[in-house]
Design a protein around this nucleic acid. Structure first.
Lengths: 170, 170
DNA sequence: ATAGGGTCCGTACCGTGGTACGGAGTCAAG
DNA sequence: CTTGACTCCGTACCACGGTACGGACCCTAT
């Protein structure tokens, strides 16, 4: 905060006047890359990476230094949130394109979300099948036995040789 | 199967005699890399990759050509099966080490499996949280609306600005 | 004026599980 | 002996989401 204030005081008078007329939020309007990274909770290199990938548009630069507007920070948060929801950067690119296009309806975004939901449900189902198989393997255990008789190693073998686990365990 | 038969028929007479005297299982006893790959359901390059990684030990070679014994094919199937259960190659390496060590008890394998089970359950829980969030987002939809009013794009924004979805949907 | 810290850019590298390529060698049949 | 299929080996490359490095440049405080 101090730094930014001092920075303002060193600006040419014209610019200082402009800034003086803007609100507090607008003061924060232009951040360096590290401030933006801090603000959005990502790494500096990550922002540069996103820019290279075209996920965020390159900001105006002052003396070769990127100056990020608040809107970019919002976009970075959007990206993080979408990632957390399981969207890949490529999918987020598409979401951002949707958000940017003139003729996008809410339905477009909606169907992308439904698609992702279906995918998530599929992954859950797969993992649950896996869960049951692992449980079934464990139920046949005899942990004190030497590995020679290990039912688990057997269970990993192909179906033909697989130990049968049907004595009501669960 | 046909391939193996034809392959046998193309062998030198000496070798064919030998094979004639062996049982079906033993016929498969020594395979080229492509036969092994076929048999185990993996690619040729994959086998070489596993060998480089030390997942399978290098087989005896005849004139510079790898000759795979049946045991290696079993091991390859073990690897595939374990992968299907969600074990990474590194974890499979450990499983194989357990299987190979003299003093391994069934309990060792057991605890590895339990560990994996816990991991799988964690992943399921995460995905289910995600599922609910996506559902919550969809329940606020108005698909005909222009994107300007899109609740979904809003929903992806950080918490402060997030639309509230509390009108009994589910 | 200068020291320090931040930023620039291009490029290389990480892990994961392979896949692809290319030139040389080998094998068995015709 | 030639042909064609197969195999050898090392190396490079793919996706994914970044992270690290190094030399040059710039900004700010003292």
């Amino acid at each position: 905060m101090w730094r930014r204030l001092l920075y303002c005081l060193q600006m040419p008078v014209q610019m200082r006047m402009q800034l003086f007329l803007l609100q507090a939020e607008a003061v924060a309007n232009s951040m360096t890359i590290s401030a933006a990274a801090q603000e959005a909770g990502v790494g500096v290199e990550t922002i540069r990476y996103y820019e290279r990938r075209g996920l965020i548009r390159q900001p105006p630069s002052k003396g070769g230094y990127r100056q990020y507007p608040e809107s970019t920070i919002r976009q970075l948060r959007f990206i993080r949130e979408s990632q957390r929801l399981g969207f890949s950067l490529t999918e987020i690119e598409e979401l951002l394109a949707l958000a940017g296009a003139e003729d996008t309806t809410c339905g477009d975004v909606c169907s992308a979300t439904e698609h992702k939901l279906a995918e998530v449900r599929g992954r859950i189902a797969t993992l649950q099948r896996l869960e049951h198989e692992l449980e079934a393997m464990l139920c046949a255990k005899d942990c004190a036995a030497p590995k020679r008789d290990c039912k688990l190693l057997e269970a990993l073998s192909p179906p033909k040789e697989r130990a049968d686990c049907s004595h009501g365990c669960h």
